[in-house]
Simulated assay, not measured.
Amino acid sequence: MNNCESEEIVEAANIAISNLLPTKSRSLYDIAYNRTGDGYQAKKSKILTKSEIDRFLSSADDKEFLMIKVGLILGIAGACRTDELVNLTVDDIEDFAASWQEYHGKISSVVASYLKLPDVACYTGHCLRRSSATLLADAGVDITTIKRHAGWKSTTVAEVMSRTPLKIRPKLLIRF
């Protein structure tokens, strides 16, 4: 293989890698990746456990927390991004959407607060998505299914989001 072919392979690999990140996340990723490290510390949303979810659903009063319960169920079952929950319409859920905007970004923190979990502010809108992936991983669901469920292309992202690294990592073999 000559040097020109090697450069073409490297360029093709770089293009493939750049397409792994969803367009919506690209600008945020670029900002975080290009930081010089001066005081910046990445923040990850915490994850609700199955027992915490069960405890909230069974003990929180429906009169006060019904919307949060529904949002929690939808967010976990659908591995939803915050904007996916925000953009629900009446066509998606009848008799529910009218009050939805009030709760969209607060579901995880309301649940964490109710359960008296530490660091309530760390239960962000991304918590439901990460919790969904983690619950699937904890139940023994394979990484490919988790990636498909959440819409992730990258195995590494799925591992990080689900807190469940693979025991055997695939190897990428490129010879130059």
Results as ranks from 00 to 15, higher is better:
Leu72Asp: 04
Leu72Phe: 12
Leu72Cys: 08
Ile73Asn: 11
Leu74Asn: 03
Leu74Cys: 12
Leu74Tyr: 10
Leu74Gly: 01
Leu74Pro: 01
Gly75Glu: 05
Gly75His: 02
Ile76Asp: 02
Gly78Glu: 01
Gly78Gln: 10
Gly78Arg: 15
Gly78His: 06
Gly78Tyr: 08
Gly78Asp: 01
Ala79Lys: 04
Ala79Asp: 01
Cys80Lys: 10
Cys80Pro: 00
Cys80Asp: 01
Cys80Val: 01
Cys80His: 06
Cys80Met: 14
Cys80Phe: 13
Arg81Thr: 00
Arg81Ile: 03
Arg81Phe: 06
Thr82Phe: 04
Thr82Arg: 05
Thr82Asp: 05
Asp83Pro: 00
Asp83Tyr: 08
Asp83Gln: 08
Glu84His: 02
Glu84Lys: 05
Glu84Met: 07
Glu84Ile: 03
Glu84Pro: 00
Leu85Ser: 01
Leu85Cys: 02
Leu85Gly: 01
Leu85Thr: 00
Leu85His: 00
Val86Phe: 08
Val86Ala: 11
Val86Tyr: 08
Val86Gln: 09
Asn87Ala: 09
Asn87Val: 05
Asn87Gly: 08
Asn87Gln: 11
Asn87Thr: 07
Asn87Leu: 12
Asn87His: 10
Leu88Asn: 04
Leu88Thr: 02
Leu88His: 04
Leu88Ser: 04
Leu88Gly: 03
Thr89Asn: 09
Thr89Cys: 10
Thr89His: 07
Thr89Glu: 13
Thr89Ile: 11
Val90Leu: 13
Val90Arg: 14
Val90Ala: 14
Val90Glu: 15
Asp91Trp: 10
Asp91Arg: 15
Asp91Gln: 14
Asp92Thr: 12
Asp92Pro: 10
Asp92Glu: 07
Ile93Leu: 15
Ile93Cys: 15
Ile93Lys: 12
Glu94Gly: 14
Glu94Ile: 14
Glu94Tyr: 13
Glu94Ser: 15
Asp95Pro: 04
Asp95Ala: 14
Asp95Phe: 13
Phe96Asp: 00
Phe96Ala: 04
Ala97Gln: 08
Ala97Trp: 04
Ala97His: 09
Ala97Phe: 06
Ala97Thr: 12
Ala98Leu: 09
Ser99Tyr: 12
Ser99Leu: 09
Trp100Leu: 12
Trp100Ala: 02
Trp100Tyr: 09
Gln101Cys: 03
Gln101Glu: 11
Gln101Met: 09
Glu102Met: 04
His104Asp: 08
His104Arg: 09
His104Ser: 11
His104Val: 06
Gly105Gln: 03
Gly105Met: 02
Gly105Val: 06
Gly105Ala: 08
Gly105Arg: 03
Lys106Pro: 00
Lys106Gln: 09
Ile107Ser: 00
Ser108Thr: 04
Ser108Met: 07
Ser108Asp: 02
Ser108Trp: 04
Ser108Gln: 02
Ser109Glu: 09
Ser109Asn: 05
Val110Arg: 14
Val110Glu: 05
Val110Lys: 14
Val110Asn: 02
Val110Thr: 11
Val110His: 05
Val111Thr: 07
Val111Lys: 05
Ala112Ser: 06
Ala112Trp: 12
Ser113Gly: 14
Ser113Asp: 13
Ser113Ile: 07
Ser113Met: 10
Tyr114Val: 05
Tyr114Arg: 11
Tyr114Ile: 09
Tyr114Gly: 00
Leu115His: 08
Leu115Tyr: 13
Leu115Trp: 13
Leu115Val: 09
Leu115Phe: 13
Lys116His: 12
Leu117Arg: 07
Leu117Cys: 04
Pro118Cys: 05
Pro118Asp: 13
Pro118Arg: 15
Pro118Ile: 06
